[in-house]
Computed example of a mutant assay.
Amino acid sequence: MKTTGNTILLSGGGSGIGLALAQRWHDAGNTVIITGRNATKLEAAVADRANLHAMTLDVTDPDAIAAFAKAMIARFPALNILVNNAGVMMYEAAGAERDLADAETTVVTNLLGPIRLIDALIDHLVAAPDSAIVNVTSGLAFVPLPKAPTYSATKAALHSYTQALRVQLEGQVEVIELAPPAVRTELTPGQSTREAYMPLDAFADEVMALFAAEPTPAEILVQNVLPLRNAEADGAVAERLAFLKAL
C-alpha cells in the first residue's frame, strides 16, 4: 500500500486508534476523511488540519451507508483506500437469558458495517489506482475475551471475511488486516488508563512502520498482539484464554 498521496476514508476516526492513524496518515501527505456519528467530536478532530476532513456516518444504517458512499465519491473522486475501523465493544453476561440488544448492535456495527461499506464502494475501488481496503480486527479474533463474546466473534468473522476478500480481489484491490492488541483507548470504560495495555502513540507508531514495509504485510501485527495471533500455532490457546478470563 502506498504510504503517501492517497485519499483515505477511515470509519470511526473521531477518537482512539482511528484518530491516531488518521493523523499519522495525514502527516504523511495523504488526504484523509474520517467518519463517525458525533459531528462535534469529528470537527474537533480535524480542526486546523488541511486535507483532514470529517463526514458523519452511522455504520449501523444501511440506507445511510448507501447515500454516504455516493456523496463520498462525488466529493472525493480520488478515493483509493477504505479503512474499516468503526466498532463497539460491550461486556456481556451470557449465563442466563437476557436482552440481546448489545449483541445485535455489536454484530451490525462490527461486521455488517464493514461488509456494507465495502460493498457500497467496491466498484469505485476496483477502478481506482493503488487501491486498498484495510479491515481493523483485533487480537481477540484469535483468542476470545470471555466477557466480550460477541465482540470477539465479530472480529473473528471479519478476519475470515478479510481472508476471503483478499483472494477475490487479488490483482484489483489490496486487502490488509490490522489486528490491534489491547490499546489504551476509550473503547471500554477505564481502558485508557490500564497500565498493562499498549500506549496509543506507541501502537500507532509501530503500525505506521509496518505499513511502510515493502511489500505491505497482509496482516499488520505489532509485537504486543503476536501472543494472541500465534496462540493456535503455539498450541497455547487454552493458556491464553485462561489469561484473558482473569482480566
Rank of each mutant, 00 (worst) to 15 (best):
P217V: 02
L169D: 03
A218N: 15
V183F: 04
E239M: 13
R49K: 12
I122K: 11
E170D: 14
R240D: 10
D119S: 11
A47R: 12
A47S: 12
F243Q: 15
V183P: 02
Q172K: 15
S131E: 05
T7W: 02
P199I: 09
L100F: 12
D27I: 06
V225E: 02
V225W: 01
L79S: 05
G190E: 04
D234R: 14
A153C: 07
I122H: 10
A28G: 06
A54M: 05
F203C: 04
A209M: 12
R75K: 14
A196Q: 14
A196T: 15
Y161V: 09
L117P: 00
R49H: 11
L221D: 08
D27E: 12
T154A: 00
R184S: 07
S11R: 02
V183D: 08
A209V: 10
T31N: 04
T150A: 06
M1Q: 10
T188M: 08
A71H: 13
P181A: 12
D99M: 01
A238Q: 14
T4W: 10
S15Y: 00
G113D: 00
I133S: 01
A96F: 15
E174H: 09
E186W: 03
Y161N: 07
A204R: 01
P227R: 06
R229T: 09
I73A: 07
T40P: 09
K155A: 05
G29H: 01
S160W: 12
T106W: 02
A54Y: 01
D205P: 09
V32L: 06
G12S: 02
L9K: 02
V134M: 04
D102M: 13
